[in-house]
Design a binder for these strands. Structure first.
Lengths: 148, 148
DNA sequence: GCGTATTATTTAGCGTGCTAATTATTTCTA
DNA sequence: TAGAAATAATTAGCACGCTAAATAATACGC
């Protein structure tokens, strides 16, 4: 009935399932998967340095308008604020609010649990192999795709 | 600077790159990746049987409204038509137009080339291993994700 | 056969990705 | 130092995923 997917499309589908899985578990905290990853990055790096949307682009492998939208929605929810940078008028510094820090503290362990669930289909050794093969594919595709 | 991604997010990213890669190569034919997969399914199955949007849902692992949108855009471009079913008033039969069949004939080999490119980072044996591990992850996630 | 449940499609609304183009600011260079 | 190039953020517009809800037709159970 249904044909086996192209390997490329199977990877897309697997990523889609991984996102759905995390989405279900993040819903109770009021954030989507990519919003959770953004807040995780902020929660971890905030003490050490100032974080801009440009930093989020690099961290999440997303383009500027995508990050802008994610940050917009986190700001609307009151999880972060954009502050003017004292040293560079072009960028704005992202700061978690108290609410945002509390939310992140609450859901970070659920994120790790979801990652563990994702890996749980494979043994430790298989996870290493999968990671290695996946990285090779990613590196190859990154060199093939015309990046602006 | 940038942290290594969670394995789950790395898979999402890899799928995203695979999609971009196919998108670049399909652009000259006037279709997006998912539109190309839909037309590929139609081009291959059309002679044998009647195909509905429900069939596309199963084939592409997508929900009804998503398929509806994809079919809308293919219809707007003149690549297919929706015909009433003589036996079931609920569904409509999808038929490629002559234009659609010609387009599909033109881009099908480019799709296979892109799949080959995706696999080219791995040896044949590694592709088998990757396929096997990926399938295990997909099966595991499918049982975890609450599917409506 | 009648009413209920199921199935197929569609619409509305949202989040996440993108590209192209705009604006503001900084940095570089001649 | 003035003008050009680069950088950061934003806006507009599109495709593709989803859920929830509406509509229409078929299938089932009594």
């Amino acid at each position: 009935m249904t044909s086996p997917l192209h390997l490329g499309r199977q990877v897309v589908y697997c990523g889609h399932l991984a996102r759905l899985c995390l989405e279900e578990r993040m819903r109770q905290f009021g954030v989507t998967p990519v919003q959770a990853y953004a807040m995780r990055f902020l929660a971890r790096g905030e003490e050490a340095r100032e974080i801009t949307q440009r930093d989020l682009e690099r961290e999440l492998r997303l383009k500027a308008p995508t990050v802008n939208g994610v940050v917009d929605r986190l700001e609307e929810k009151g999880f972060l604020v954009r502050q003017p940078s004292p040293t560079d008028g072009r960028c704005r510094l992202l700061r978690l609010t108290d609410t945002g820090r509390e939310a992140a503290a609450a859901f970070l362990s659920a994120m790790e649990d979801t990652e563990a669930l994702f890996r749980s289909a494979l043994t430790d050794r298989e996870q290493q192999i999968f990671q290695e093969l996946l990285s090779r594919i990613v590196t190859n595709l990154e060199s093939e795709v015309h990046r602006t």
